[in-house]
Design a protein around this nucleic acid. Structure first.
Lengths: 249, 249
DNA sequence: TATAGTTGTCTATATCAATAGACAAATTTA
DNA sequence: TAAATTTGTCTATTGATATAGACAACTATA
């Protein structure tokens, strides 16, 4: 069976180019499983007709997705899907990166990109229940599954209580393991705020995205089982590679 | 205090025009509360300098937001913020439209846009635990808060069990009240999948959005307290007006 | 009432995005 | 092998996007 592509129209003079809109549609179709891995896309002329655009416009969209590593074009044969559908990242009471992606990716880990000590901003202080300006440690991390970046996060911890968590993080590649060194053997997700926006320049670089991509943004507070805030975090997930599965929390 | 606007750079030849990217940034800044209601935006020349673009490009962005009802420009005085920050829509075990927005909007209701009976598609059948092709009632609805569209949803119910729910919905303007007529006095959110994408033509029209806008998409199943699926739904929320608050479920 | 600061309008130019058509190059199929 | 199908490349044209500069119109303030 040939994959389905939504026939609904695309918007002209919207500030988003037609090729970008078409690329998004193809990504979406792949993400929801309309095209299996290695499946052939409809030929360029068919796509052009379906969307009511010129063949060259479709070619621009395909070129972007080839560049992005999603498609592979072969002269004379066709254009084929490389990447599989989106990962499903569970968010619940016990949100854990590696455990959550178990079964969906054979290799998963968190890379520590940078760390620093800084005075808590308004929202970080509020989230952690600290006075504004209290020193906090910020960990900048990237989550990877089978070598693909699937999340980019900043996490804040009270500096006094968690001195050295940056080194622990670099060593273990796991938040859970790092917190264990500070006597925290369990922690719960207290709250999660969720929004979405276009990826900014930093997101594009860190997550290996193409301009115009969308990121899901979660802002969360983790607490000990008795309700003491230990971590405030903001995570970005590329919407084209990840969807969030909200489970019991 | 002058509001903060992220200084991070914007992407050229990304398929998303510069004016659209700048408009998104301003929207984001307003949404996270960097500009209060009626606050003045920095002057056009300052914005142009901050983003490294021409003043006319900034003007295009502002023009789009004025058109959208977010900003108001006054010659000789400045450009001012009209709309408030995003609504926070709670998603949890008992996700209810009206109750969830209580305190954030004085008036909230659901409008029934259309309804139909159709054979269940693959995913609807799976969600409701029915055989594919079983007749289901589809309700197309729009959620409004203080007159602004904040959600657009399609809900599916087994046609046999819920015959007449469309009329009930049109009459009551509430899913909860409509289900009560069928003897369901309580229901729970069983699962929620969350993703994000660009708004399509239908979203733009139904939610009164400008092209290029982003929508958050939830796909959920509601069940009776004893676990019987009663409703499968797909909802779209405009990311510029709504963020999702994930609470205990 | 000047003056400075701000948005609004106009002209001009360069680049990107999209359309149009033709044909080459590679692959598959009859 | 020949024909059909598909992606790749080229030229040309049009409209949208972005830059640049100048000045008008309006507002607030010294």
């Amino acid at each position: 069976m040939v994959g389905q592509l939504a026939a609904d129209s695309i918007e002209r003079r919207s500030g988003v180019s037609l090729w970008r809109q078409i690329a998004d549609k193809i990504l979406h179709a792949i993400a929801i499983g309309d095209f299996a891995e290695n499946a052939a896309l409809p030929p360029e002329v068919a796509l052009a007709e379906r969307y009511g655009v010129n063949r060259h416009t479709v070619r621009s969209a395909i070129a972007a997705l080839v560049q992005e590593g999603v498609l592979r074009a072969e002269q004379g044969r066709g254009t084929f899907v490389l990447s599989r559908k989106r990962l499903s990242y569970p968010i619940g009471a016990r949100t854990r990166f590696s455990a959550g992606l178990q079964g969906q990716a054979s290799e998963r880990h968190i890379v520590l990109l940078a760390s620093s000590v800084e005075p808590a901003s308004q929202r970080v202080a509020e989230g952690l229940g600290l006075a504004r300006g209290t020193n906090v440690i910020r960990l900048e991390t990237r989550g990877e599954a089978d070598g693909r970046p699937v999340s980019r996060a900043a996490g804040w911890f009270e500096a006094r209580r968690f001195a050295g968590i940056d080194a622990a993080m670099a060593q273990t590649g796991s938040i859970t393991a790092s917190l264990a060194r500070f006597g925290i053997d369990d922690y719960l997700r207290q709250s999660t705020m969720l929004s979405a926006r276009h990826a900014d320049a930093a997101d594009l670089a860190d997550l290996d995205l193409q301009p115009g991509a969308i990121v899901l943004v979660t802002v969360a507070v983790n607490v000990t089982p008795d309700g003491q805030p230990i971590q405030f975090s903001e995570s970005r997930f590329p919407a084209e590679r990840v969807e969030l599965k909200l489970s019991a929390l």
